[in-house]
């Protein structure tokens, strides 16, 4: 009996290991390739680990001023973008969940409809709009157009709808304003949905490629991480070790965030899927 149990455990372990390898192999391969010299990175026969761990690529990419500036500019932009979008979307979510106002159903449809509009359908005309607004090649064009998110607002509204109403009524009777209720009662208990939504915003900004390529492509000071990575090969040829080192560093922020907030995020996916 124990033998059989042990066998089941062993099979489960192997199967789990296979899942881990499938999920992480491309990332591990990327990170390891960063430690290989030019002669070794595509060497045949295949060898997973380098003969000698060589930090040259990582040192070289971190000494490249364009890469470092891109890293910081993108990171700072992503942080600002995340905070602003949390603010705008949570405010609207609270109003739609709890307040009563003129023509609410109409505003609700207007606020929700954009969720169903795919990016490509409006990519071209959005570009026309931001160029007419004089936003091209400024930081504003990276941050402002994507701030309002119907999906995130909807997600948070569902959360607020499920928040008990009693505390709020008591506060109203005590003379608190709606704004005070939002900032003093609702925001402090929104940690879990804020982590999920904030992570989504950060990810959207950090991983954006086509929009920054089109709108700030002519401003090297605003070069974004994905544009840098995608343009790497045409700028410097197939220096795979260096590119993989840069890619590893570029992937780190999002992966670290997942690991820190894993509990919130994996349940957040579940809630988003079940809506």
């Amino acid at each position: 009996m124990t033998g059989k149990l042990l066998a089941v455990k062993g099979i489960k372990f192997l199967f789990g290991l296979a899942i881990v390898i499938t999920s992480l192999f491309p990332l591990a391969w990327m990170a390891v390739a960063g430690f290989k010299g030019k002669s070794e990175v595509l060497r045949s026969p295949f060898q997973f680990f380098p003969d000698m761990w060589d930090w040259t690529n990582y040192r070289q990419i971190l000494a490249d001023p364009a890469f470092v500036r891109t890293l910081w500019v993108t990171f700072a932009g992503a942080v600002v973008f995340t905070l602003l979008s949390l603010f705008i979307n949570s405010m609207a979510a609270y109003a739609f969940a709890r307040l009563d106002f003129f023509w609410k159903p109409l505003w609700w449809v207007v606020a929700l409809m954009p969720m169903f509009v795919p990016g490509m359908a409006i990519l071209i005309t959005s570009f026309v709009v931001v160029s007419k607004l004089g936003m091209l090649n400024t930081i504003a064009v990276l941050i402002i157009p994507g701030l309002a998110s119907s999906g995130q607002m909807f997600f948070l509204r569902q959360f607020y709808l499920n928040t008990p109403i009693a505390v709020e009524e008591a506060a109203l009777i005590d003379g608190a304003s709606r704004w005070q209720i939002f900032t003093k009662i609702f925001l402090p208990q929104s940690k879990a949905p804020f982590v999920v939504m904030g992570f989504g915003s950060f990810l959207a900004y950090w991983n954006a490629y086509v929009w920054p390529l089109l709108t700030v492509g002519d401003n090297p000071n605003l070069l974004q991480m994905q544009v840098y990575l995608a343009g790497f090969r045409s700028e410097r040829g197939d220096d795979w070790g260096l590119l993989m080192a840069g890619g590893t560093i570029a992937a780190l922020p999002t992966i670290v965030l997942v690991l820190i907030f894993q509990r919130y995020i994996t349940t957040g996916v579940r809630i988003a899927g079940m809506k």
């Binding site: 307040l99 954009p114 959005s126 709009v129 309002a148 304003s177 939002f182």
Partner: peptide
């Protein structure tokens, strides 16, 4: 209060999603 709270969202969506769609 309600309009002040939904205004940023609605204005941004109107400029950067709804108008581009209509315009398209």
């Amino acid at each position: 209060t309600a309009f002040l709270m939904i205004a940023p969202l609605l204005i941004l969506l109107a400029i950067f999603v709804i108008w581009p769609l209509v315009y398209a």
